[in-house]
Computed example of a mutant assay.
Amino acid sequence: MKGILIRQVVGEVLREMRADAGMTLRQVSMASMVSLGYLSEIERGHKEASSEVLNSIVGALGSTLSELLGAVTIKVASQEISRAEIGIAA
């Protein structure tokens, strides 16, 4: 069974943060100076972003890198617990 991919969780959390901020991909792209295509790939979990790029994205969302990483940590821990409860190896 496939393990947890951090890039996918980061993408999910960024998408949630963007939705909460009421922003479109294009708005975040312009505000963060990250290309629309690359931002989309990050949100879909297809690309891994550097800490600098992530910092730029969360800044455009009015958030911080620590908030992003905290939310990712909680989501990963939840997935690990769920997998352990049903007996899936990570």
Results as ranks from 00 to 15, higher is better:
residue 71 A to N: 04
residue 76 V to S: 13
residue 51 S to D: 11
residue 54 L to F: 08
residue 9 V to K: 12
residue 73 T to Q: 13
residue 2 K to P: 14
residue 77 A to Y: 04
residue 59 G to S: 14
residue 3 G to H: 12
residue 11 G to I: 01
residue 44 R to L: 15
residue 4 I to Q: 06
residue 67 E to G: 02
residue 74 I to P: 00
residue 7 R to Q: 13
residue 11 G to D: 03
residue 3 G to P: 14
residue 27 Q to M: 14
residue 34 V to R: 00
residue 56 S to N: 14
residue 11 G to L: 05
residue 2 K to E: 08
residue 3 G to L: 09
residue 21 A to I: 05
residue 69 L to S: 07
residue 63 S to F: 00
residue 38 Y to S: 01
residue 51 S to C: 02
residue 54 L to Q: 09
residue 31 A to R: 11
residue 60 A to F: 01
residue 72 V to W: 01
residue 47 K to G: 00
residue 42 I to L: 13
residue 43 E to K: 10
residue 32 S to Y: 03
residue 31 A to N: 12
residue 11 G to S: 08
residue 22 G to T: 11
residue 57 I to A: 06
residue 9 V to F: 11
residue 8 Q to F: 06
residue 6 I to C: 09
residue 16 E to P: 02
residue 24 T to G: 02
residue 29 S to F: 10
residue 64 T to H: 11
residue 67 E to L: 10
residue 27 Q to P: 03
residue 56 S to I: 02
residue 43 E to F: 09
residue 2 K to G: 00
residue 25 L to K: 07
residue 59 G to V: 06
residue 55 N to H: 09
residue 64 T to E: 12
residue 24 T to H: 08
residue 21 A to M: 11
residue 40 S to P: 01
residue 27 Q to C: 07
residue 41 E to V: 02
residue 45 G to M: 05
residue 43 E to R: 07
residue 65 L to S: 12
residue 39 L to S: 03
residue 36 L to E: 13
residue 15 R to I: 07
residue 73 T to F: 04
residue 48 E to H: 02
residue 28 V to A: 12
residue 17 M to V: 08
residue 26 R to K: 13
residue 2 K to D: 10
residue 54 L to G: 05
residue 24 T to W: 05
residue 10 V to L: 09
residue 12 E to N: 12
residue 77 A to Q: 12
